[in-house]
Design a protein around this nucleic acid. Structure first.
Length: 498
RNA sequence: GGGUUGUUAGCUCAGCUGGUAGAGCACCGCACUUUUAAUGCGAUGGUCGAGCGUUCGAAUCGCUCACGACCCA
């Protein structure tokens, strides 16, 4: 034992010694305690009762949770315990516990320990609903001290790396993840009641398809073959539509081998859904209804506050085409500037957009859109008519063969959703794949592979279908007012320490 | 990838132009039967992110690295 031990080691050692004593006395990690209620249920049921009503009713309760605070005042103490629902105060006195227990047991316990307590509800002088404890047990000894109670954890890194501490300490963080689950549950219910069927499709794919993104590669030993983590489930879900599951959805992880940012995590959650005998306009309407429903049912309002802005989900969402939106936000431009490749190159160069030789008119339009429009789309907005060149899986528009029957949805300057009428013409799809392969061969490692099996599926006939993907993480960011995607991922990707 | 910025006690943070390391909370001891950031008194606790350099002397100045945060691409 060295003379100068770090403070934390001393505290942990003290707690270990207490645990050793517990092991000698009794079962140190008992499992036989059962609670009959949780904190918020008590607050909801009894907080409105008067002191006198509670005294006369003498309601007995059994609670369990982590001891978050404790104020010892001689022969009596107050402590707050926290369970899955919230916190409630315990009033523990020497004389209501078995002889000696208060001094030799309870007062030796530590903040962070998990306890089970039994007693009668009452209200304190200042009116806080509390439990007058007459039986209390230590259920789990915590060997490590909690962070400081008042400021909580300020270091973002600890919040991400030790999320359990963040969840113990921060009501806001807990709430964010509760809302995340509520949003997903809402979407699941919304689609299920519209006859969509939830399915699971491969995470490990031999040909990574469905999005233009760089995949993670892995390897299957027994089959001696390369596999890729999926960048999207799209092509499998559409195979299911070919198979007759005419409305399907999947809520699951995608993996993209790209950089990290406040809006990007290598694994992220998407919902994709496909509806046969529908087109992209139907899905815009469905999306609008669904998002308004999330706002109303999960957040309780159609006015969503995000950072310093307010977004209004009550009004019909704005709809305009890519070209219309460029002209709208660039009043100095006119149709002719976006009508030919040479004109668009001029505009793009003026905006300092790096241009590759392979860019066609459509790609140039999208570059101009992303540079000058995307971040300005604050209120809920659908952008439609995306160029064929950047939409290899979307159906070509019948009137304008340069664009597809596709939309993206934006709010707060961020893309949240992407949907389109699916390309169910196998010959057109094969052509599009071939163009993607040319781009891949030219060095674009985000370009798609040629998926022969998928073409075969389409050749069996896919009914007219519309499909959409929504980024769940970005959606949750919006509805929880979270500035970073890491705030809505329980365990965001972090570089390993050391 | 570029810019800005951070890393000091278990936690939250001070630490000025370089001169022997500070507070609050937590922890330990004493007192206290309605507190709630409990209170009062006392004590313990540090390889100042890592390395190299400048200097008589570095938490402080410089460089490199590690890990974050924010902004930009």
């Amino acid at each position: 034992m060295s003379e100068t031990q770090p403070d934390e080691q001393i505290q942990i050692q003290q707690r270990r010694e207490k645990l050793t004593a517990l092991r000698e006395d009794s079962i140190a990690f008992p499992t036989d305690f059962r609670r009959d209620v949780i904190a918020d249920e008590l607050l909801a049921a009894y907080n409105e009762k008067t002191k006198e009503e509670l005294e006369s009713e003498a309601i007995r309760v059994k609670l369990a949770g982590r001891m978050m605070t404790r104020r010892i005042m001689g022969k009596a103490s107050f402590a707050h315990i926290q369970d899955m629902s919230g916190k409630i105060q315990l009033y523990v006195t020497r004389d209501t516990l078995p002889a000696g227990f208060y001094n030799t047991q309870f007062k030796k316990w530590d903040i962070g320990d998990i306890v089970g307590a039994e007693g009668v509800l009452f209200k304190t002088k200042v009116g806080e609903l509390s439990v007058r404890v007459d039986n209390i047990r230590l259920l789990t000894k915590a060997l490590r001290p909690l962070p400081e109670k008042f400021h909580g954890i300020a270091d973002q890194e600890i919040k991400y790396r030790q999320r359990y501490l963040d969840l113990i300490m921060s009501d806001d963080s807990r709430k964010t993840f509760v809302i995340r689950t509520q949003i997903i549950n809402y979407i699941r219910q919304f689609l299920t009641e519209r006859q969509f069927m939830e399915v699971e499709t491969p995470m490990m794919q031999t040909i990574p398809g469905g999005a233009t993104a760089r995949p993670f590669a892995t390897y299957h030993n027994a089959l001696d073959m390369d596999l890729y983590l999926r960048v999207a489930p799209e092509l499998y879900l559409k195979r299911l539509v070919v198979g007759g599951f005419e409305r399907v959805f999947e809520i699951n992880r995608n993996f993209r081998n790209e950089g990290l940012s406040t809006r990007h995590n290598p694994e992220f959650t998407m919902i994709e859904f496909y509806q046969a005998y529908a087109e992209y306009g139907d899905l815009m309407n469905l999306t609008e209804t669904m998002l308004r429903g999330i706002a109303t049912n999960v957040c309780g309002t159609t006015t969503v506050k995000y950072q310093n802005e307010e977004y209004d989900f009550s009004k019909p969402f704005t709809r305009m085409s890519v070209v219309e939106s460029i002209l709208h936000f660039n009043p100095n431009l006119n149709n002719a500037d976006l009508a030919t490749k040479n004109a668009a190159i001029q505009i793009a160069q003026g905006l300092n957009i790096p241009i590759k030789d392979s860019y066609g008119l459509g790609k140039l339009q999208i570059e101009i859109f992303e540079k000058t429009v995307e971040h300005r789309l604050m209120q809920p907005t659908f952008i439609t008519a995306y160029p064929v060149e950047v939409s290899p899986l979307a159906r070509r528009n019948d009137k304008d063969p340069h664009v597809t029957d596709r939309f993206e949805f934006f709010v707060g300057g961020r893309e949240i959703a992407n949907g389109f009428t699916e390309l169910n013409d196998p010959e057109d799809q094969a052509d599009r794949f071939r163009k993607q392969v040319l781009e891949k061969d030219a060095g674009d490692n985000e370009a798609m592979h040629y998926d022969e099996d998928y073409i075969t599926a389409l050749e069996h006939g896919m009914p007219p279908t519309a499909g959409e993907g929504i980024g769940i993480d970005r959606l949750v960011m919006l509805f929880t007012n979270s500035p970073s995607i890491r705030d809505v991922l329980l365990f965001p990707h972090m570089r390993p320490k050391n």
